[in-house]
Design a protein around this nucleic acid. Structure first.
Length: 424
RNA sequence: GGAGAGUUGCCGGAGUGGUCGAACGGGGCAGUCUCGAAAACUGUUGUACCUUCGGGUACCGGGGGUUCGAAUCCCUCACUCUCCGCCA
């Protein structure tokens, strides 16, 4: 959510920058500024009436105490009209605020200067591309067949137990999952992220804080009887730790990591890239989150990108880093780097991480602020997060890329975690 | 699931109709004292919005009501805690 004052101060900037996101904000911005002016006028008037009301009330109290009941009653009579006024002001004011809010949440975050112009995913900028595609010859199997061959993942069983998109990992498949989770968490801890084990369900306020609610409600599983939502990512509970909080500037940045299962309804995405592990309703992910000082947040973003890169390097996967273009970047993000690994049997790039700086867009909604020494007013902090990493597509690439006649080779770095070197 | 208690500022906790943005204690910050520190003493210490920059307004879990006036009374919702039952 963009800051109201900012919109009012720099409407042209907002419109110009959102144009890059292919979003025409001119009408909304105009309306917001209009309503904002009205709101201020209204508040001025309402406050004056309230002020008078308060004065009279005080006077009435005094008069009664002095036994001047008659004078008191005269004063009382005057309040009848004022009361009506206040009531009406309250109604109008609430309405105008609601209108502003409705418009405000429609505006996406402004893209960072470095975001390349573009219409969609084809226009993303490849920042770097590292590693050779493995030569597998003609008999390479896609991961869903490997998973079956070595009895690692049972998709059919998942359908029986729950439904499509809920695979059952077993044997070395299950152990590989656990190994990856521990590996990622250990790496994050070494990069001084504090580990969090968050709830897997959140309340409405949290869903709202990170922007899943009210609009993207359909993406989350809703537990109606208790009005809770299954988290689509650990970002939701972890970032909401800082909701309604004023941090001390000298403690920034705050760094957290969390492993969690993630639940996504993925409504409307049936039929496309859904084979095997490519798109699931439940999957595992380790997330990293940082709360940063506005002046430092792009350094922090850089650091997070490097951290994620170190993971794919250690896993010996061919990868590339994309700087998302203005047409592909998410609603809430100012700058996003995607990580893709190459899955050699499917012969395609799979997105395994998305690292973003939201600047103050999330913080504004979360009321996440920090206080700087010597500065009276708290300021909005910047929030950043990234996957480090999402498991299923990593597993897909590992299985496909490392298949040999003897079996599937486990990358060296993972062996201490899996306890085995090969799946055969 | 049954019964009860509660939700006040950074924390503890008082306040049951007016002078309460809120006693008191703790914590934080600043000062005095000290070579320095501790102790003691003194002061200070919420957020948001509006402003003609004098000031004004709102907020004591959320919403609604009564009243000239509500942290305080009434209604309603949410949450938390305790005991019993059940249970990983």
């Amino acid at each position: 959510m963009l800051n109201l004052k900012f919109i009012q101060d720099k409407p042209e900037l907002v419109i110009e920058k959102l144009k890059r996101k292919n979003f025409d904000a001119s009408e909304i911005v105009k309306n917001i500024i209009n309503l904002y002016r009205q709101k201020n006028v209204l508040q001025g008037q309402a406050d004056r009436v309230r002020s008078e009301m308060n004065k009279i009330s005080k006077k009435v109290g005094l008069l009664f105490r002095e036994g001047k009941a008659e004078e008191a009653n005269i004063a009382k009579a005057r309040t009848i009209e004022l009361k009506e006024n206040i009531k009406q002001y309250d109604i109008d004011f609430a309405e105008i605020e609601k209108s502003i809010y409705k418009l405000q949440v429609q505006l996406p975050n402004l893209p960072h200067e470095s975001v390349p112009l573009g219409k969609g995913e084809d226009d993303n900028e490849v920042v770097k591309s590292v590693g050779e595609f493995p030569e597998l010859g003609g008999k390479a199997l896609p991961h869903w067949e490997l998973a079956q061959k070595y009895n690692l993942i049972d998709f059919e069983l998942g359908v029986k137990l729950t439904g499509a998109g809920f695979p059952v990992y077993r044997g070395k498949g299950a152990r590989l999952q656990r190994a990856l989770i521990n590996f990622f968490l250990d790496q994050a801890r070494e990069a001084s992220y504090e580990e969090i084990q968050p709830p897997l369900m959140v309340n409405e306020a949290s869903g709202f804080g990170t922007g899943q609610l009210p609009d993207k409600e359909g993406q989350m599983y809703h537990v109606g009887i208790d009005n809770l939502y299954l988290i689509p990512t650990a970002e939701v509970p972890v970032t909401n730790i800082y909701r309604d909080v004023i941090l001390d500037a000298k403690n920034l940045p705050y760094k957290n990591t969390a492993y969690s299962a993630c639940f996504r309804r993925e409504a409307g995405s049936y039929g496309k890239d859904v084979r095997g592990l490519n798109r699931l309703h439940q999957f595992d992910k380790v997330e990293i989150v940082q709360i940063a000082h506005p002046e430092k947040s792009y350094e922090v973003l850089d650091e997070m990108v490097k951290h994620v890169e170190s993971l794919v390097v250690k896993l010996e996967l061919p990868y590339r880093i994309l700087r998302l273009c203005s047409g592909d970047i998410s609603f809430t993000s100012a700058l996003t780097f995607d990580f893709e690994v190459y899955s050699a049997a499917q012969k395609k790039w799979l997105e395994v991480s998305s690292v973003s700086n939201f600047e103050s867009f999330q913080a504004n909604r979360l009321k996440l602020r920090f206080r700087e020494e010597g500065v009276k007013r708290p300021q909005l902090a910047h929030t950043l997060n990234g996957s480090a990493l999402a498991l299923p597509r990593i597993v897909a690439a590992l299985l496909e890329n490392n298949q040999t006649k003897e079996g599937i080779k486990i990358p060296k770095v993972l062996v201490p975690y899996t306890g085995f070197e090969i799946i055969d």
